[in-house]
Simulated assay, not measured.
Amino acid sequence: MKKILFCLAVFQLFGLGTVIAQEIPESEFTPLFNGKNLDGWIGNKTAYRAENGMIVIDPKGGGGGNLFTEKEYGNFILKFEFLLTPGANNGLGIHAPLEGDAAYVGKEIQILDNEAEKYADLHDYQFHGSVYGVMAAKRGHLKAPGEWNQQEVIVQHPKIKVILNGTTILEGDYLESSKNGTLDQKEHPGLKRSIGHIGFLGHGDVVHFRNIRIKELPATNN
């Protein structure tokens, strides 16, 4: 039965079924954060800290910076919860190397309070849930700062789907979307990467993360 649900979830990503990925039992997911410390993570452990079952980035602890999984991941379903402070900006890096700007040498999925007044002039590809510079997500499904959001990111290179609080806000193929040039008109060599680290990409704002878990999916032939 677990195998059937798993297959149906993958089919759904490609529009081949109607069963959503949440039907994969939670027992199929592996925690990425033990709730106690940052074992299994590498990067800026000054700005990021484990606190009360959360990963908290606090610029007073050392600025922004990135925190990555020690392990690299290819195709996966990632689930996590996040809480934004007013105007907060962070990012989810996927398929990222440990050096360079993950938005370009890997891929960055925006984590952002894009309803804040200071972001009134954002480009579409900067909205929360967007693949930065490449694919624009739908707005209007973020909870207010101070409330917990639930997010799910499904990656089957080169396809990606982002579900925020139960609503699909982004779905598509990032290589296909960029074949005639990216939305920001910049080079994104990381779009071709099919494996790398997962990370939180800090921009100097306080953000809380919890219940971070992953289900690895089979490799594709792309």
Rank of each mutant, 00 (worst) to 15 (best):
V162A: 08
D205E: 15
E72M: 12
I214Q: 09
V206A: 07
D184K: 07
G181R: 08
S27M: 00
N34M: 05
K138S: 15
H95E: 04
E216I: 00
I169P: 08
P86Y: 06
G199K: 13
E70D: 12
R49V: 11
L122K: 08
V134Q: 05
T69C: 05
P31D: 10
H208P: 06
E152I: 14
E23D: 07
I163W: 11
G40K: 10
S178R: 02
E26Y: 01
A21T: 14
T30L: 11
I214R: 03
H157A: 06
F11H: 06
I57Q: 11
A120H: 10
I212E: 05
L98V: 13
P189T: 13
E171T: 13
A47N: 04
V105I: 14
F33A: 09
A96R: 03
I195T: 11
G93E: 08
S130H: 15
T85Q: 12
Q185P: 08
Y73N: 02
A103I: 03
P97M: 05
D101K: 12
H188Y: 11
D39P: 01
Q12I: 00
D173A: 05
H128D: 09
C7P: 00
E70I: 11
E81P: 06
F29M: 01
K79H: 10
F6Y: 08
K3D: 09
Q22H: 06
E23K: 00
G172E: 09
L98E: 14
D101T: 10
L183S: 13
V56H: 03
A88E: 05
E147A: 14
M54R: 13
F6K: 09
S194L: 04
K45L: 08
L83I: 10
T167G: 00
L170I: 14
K192W: 07
L38T: 01
N90G: 10
P158K: 01
L201F: 13
N222I: 07
G196T: 10
D113R: 02
L78F: 10
N89H: 13
I57W: 07
G100M: 04
I154K: 05
G202T: 08
G172D: 09
A120P: 00
I20M: 00
E108K: 05
L16I: 04
V131I: 15
N114E: 14
G87L: 02
L13G: 06
E99Q: 14
K179D: 02
I109L: 14
G17T: 09
E152P: 13
L175T: 02
P25N: 01
G35E: 05
Q150W: 03
D124W: 11
E171W: 12
N34A: 07
Q151F: 08
I195H: 11
K45N: 11
T69W: 07
G64S: 06
S177V: 12
L191E: 08
P218A: 04
R213F: 05
F82T: 04
S27L: 01
D113M: 01
I160V: 15
Y174H: 15
A9T: 00
I212F: 11
A96V: 03
E216G: 01
N180K: 15
I4L: 08
P97D: 11
K60Q: 07
P25L: 00
Q151G: 02
S178Y: 14
I195S: 10
G15Y: 02
H128P: 13
G133E: 14
E51W: 10
V56E: 01
A102H: 03
G166Q: 05
G35N: 07
I154D: 00
H157L: 02
G100I: 06
Q110C: 12
G64F: 02
P31W: 01
E176F: 13
H141N: 15
